[in-house]
Amino acid sequence: MTAASDRPPFDTDIPTPFRGPRTRASGKRRGKGRRRSSYAQRLARARRAKLQLWGGVLLACLGFAAIAAWERYNLPVGEMRSGPVPLCSSFQRNNCIIDGDTGRDQGEKWRLIAIDTPEISDPGCENERVIAIAARNRLRDLLVDGYRLRSSGRKDPHGRNLVDIELTDGRDVSRILLDEGLAQRWPNRGNIWCDRYTSNPVRKRG
């Protein structure tokens, strides 16, 4: 009978499997999978971010278009203003007239949208200065009994509100100034007041 001390240990009878290479290979495969997965996630995130960006831009454009459309079709017809209207000066800059096609309403500058009258401040000739003063005075006379200032919702390059003015009897101020030879259509070319305009403007009452 063999003594207990002479017998080999129990675990030496079972060979230990060699797992080194397989474990290393498996580790490499897992690493590649993680790298591929990480790249795919980054790519997906980049695509989502790009879609969100373009979606935001599209929504912003639609929002601006909606606001512009609302303003275009919901502009107020215009509030009635009472006359007479004084000439603008260093002491009068609230509601006043600057020249034949320009003035101020509640401190904001406006300009008639469809016509151009001669310049008072920097005339090209004496004839232009004379007609410019006549146009300004005629505009002031027309607004004595009240008027309606109708905004177009746009501004000119100088920041002035582009408007039409309707009198209480429904007549259009721009049309009157054109018919009386005190204005020309806008936009225009050249200085007709000095180059071609030699007759006196027609002055109509009423």
Rank of each mutant, 00 (worst) to 15 (best):
D164R: 12
I97H: 06
R111L: 02
M1E: 09
C194T: 09
R154T: 15
G190Q: 02
L43R: 11
R19L: 11
G31S: 14
A114N: 11
S121H: 14
P15A: 14
K50G: 04
A46T: 12
A114Y: 01
L51S: 11
R196H: 12
M1H: 05
A4F: 10
P15F: 07
P8W: 07
R19M: 07
R42I: 07
D141A: 13
S38I: 10
D179S: 02
G63C: 13
K28N: 13
P84R: 02
I98H: 06
R189N: 06
R104T: 09
R148P: 04
N200G: 04
D164W: 01
E71M: 08
R189L: 10
E126H: 05
P76Y: 14
Q184A: 04
G55E: 03
R205S: 10
N95M: 02
R140V: 06
R196N: 12
R140S: 11
N188R: 09
L62D: 04
C88W: 14
C125Q: 08
A49T: 09
I113L: 07
G83W: 03
K28V: 12
P15L: 08
R104D: 10
R72E: 14
S5T: 13
G55I: 07
Q184P: 00
P187I: 05
L149Q: 03
R160M: 06
L58S: 11
D141L: 09
A65H: 01
D179N: 06
P9S: 04
A135V: 05
A3V: 04
R19N: 08
S37N: 05
D6L: 09
F10Y: 10
G146F: 01
W54N: 09
F18L: 14
W70M: 10
N200Q: 15
R30K: 13
N137K: 15
W70A: 14
L177F: 00
G31I: 09
L87Y: 15
P86G: 01
I165D: 00
